[in-house]
């Protein structure tokens, strides 16, 4: 009798414990199956993505890769998930520029037509990705870096990205910084066309331009200028350690003041998808750098690395009250 009771107890406990285990896990299984149904465009399942480690790359400098949360030392942008980073699609892109007339004259009407293309594959259409809300960012500087303009050619039905050059007496149709420009003086200019072909890597085309007419008087920059005032806004750049050093990731703090009072940079309007944009061009080598400041505690926080010593010109653009303001700087890197 006692043995029978013993056996019954043994069986009861054994069965209940096994039931307990199975019931605990059945819910998990249902959960895990639903997670695998998301399928990406190429038809691969999530499992593929889960199995490998992710690559994070700078959206502007795809050669810069790292892990999540890292920052690009060149432009200070947060690295974004991009498993195709560093894998070129094997195409060499080129930006073809045509001007009408062949030589743009200062103070006269003209037209720039930009056509992105693939080297050795004439006629291939190159769709461009949006980056910072535009397909092409065109930076126009005079060779002495005294003149700066950031504009955006517009795609036309003809298949080119056009930019109108206005005659001296004609005002901008929809305000400055859009798809029009003008040249008050002739001389040497440099155009930087910043674009990303769809499926390709970011491209930068440096185009030298000679504008006819009375040339501008070149300005030489030697002493640093780290505070700039436009309208009632003042933006002061304060580098960490109070100096810019070669090859070191520079942390630059930007203190914005409006009417003499410190203003929270986070309250600025978005301009092209960011609170501010900074362009830096070297006086000597005319190397171009596009930096995106972050806003930390109401102040701009810029990160960049200067690879060579020398004098740089910098321009910061931001928008408030519907108006874009361009601040200019002279940066001495030692």
């Amino acid at each position: 009798m006692r043995t029978n009771i013993k056996t019954a107890i043994v069986l009861t406990v054994a069965i209940t414990s096994s039931v307990l285990f199975t019931s605990c896990t059945s819910a998990d299984k249902a959960e895990s199956t639903t997670e695998t149904t998301a399928i990406n465009a190429a038809g691969t399942t999530d499992a593929d993505a889960h199995s490998g480690t992710h690559t994070y790359a700078c959206p502007m400098h795809p050669e810069v890769t790292g892990k999540e949360g890292d920052m690009c030392p060149k432009c200070g942008m947060k690295l974004e998930h991009n498993d195709n980073a560093g894998k070129s699609n094997g195409k060499a892109y080129v930006m073809n520029v045509k001007t009408t007339p062949a030589t743009i004259e200062a103070g006269k009407a003209g037209l720039f037509s930009f056509t992105p293309g693939v080297k050795d594959k004439e006629g291939e259409l190159v769709p461009l990705d949006l980056h910072h809300e535009r397909k092409i960012h065109l930076i126009v500087v005079s060779k002495d870096l005294s003149y700066f303009e950031h504009i955006h050619p517009d795609y036309q039905a003809s298949g080119t990205y056009d930019l109108a050059v206005l005659p001296a007496n004609k005002a901008y149709t929809a305000g400055a910084n859009k798809n029009e420009t003008h040249f008050a003086k002739g001389g040497e200019y440099i155009l930087f066309a910043d674009y990303t072909p769809t499926g390709g890597t970011p491209q930068l085309e440096k185009i030298n331009l000679t504008v006819g007419g009375t040339p501008y008087k070149p300005v030489t920059y030697s002493s640093p200028k780290l505070s700039s005032t436009v309208d009632n806004y003042t933006l002061e750049l304060v580098p960490e350690g109070n100096q810019f050093e070669v090859g070191k990731l520079a942390h630059i703090e930007g203190v914005l003041k409006k009417d003499g009072k410190v203003m929270d940079a986070a309250t600025l309007e978005n301009y092209l998808g960011a609170k501010a944009h900074m362009v830096v061009v070297g006086i000597d080598d005319k190397n171009y750098l596009h930096v995106h400041p972050e806003v930390v505690n109401g102040k701009f926080d810029l990160h960049t690395t200067f690879e060579k010593a020398g004098i740089y010109r910098g321009w910061v653009q931001f928008q408030d009250g519907g108006k874009i303001r361009t601040m200019d700087y002279v940066i001495a890197v030692k």
Binding site: A14, I15, T16, S17, S18, V19, F21, T22, T25
Partner: peptide, 10 residues
């Protein structure tokens, strides 16, 4: 799980 539980219980 069932087998394991049974063994464990026994």
């Amino acid at each position: 799980l069932l087998g394991g539980g049974l063994l464990l219980g026994m």
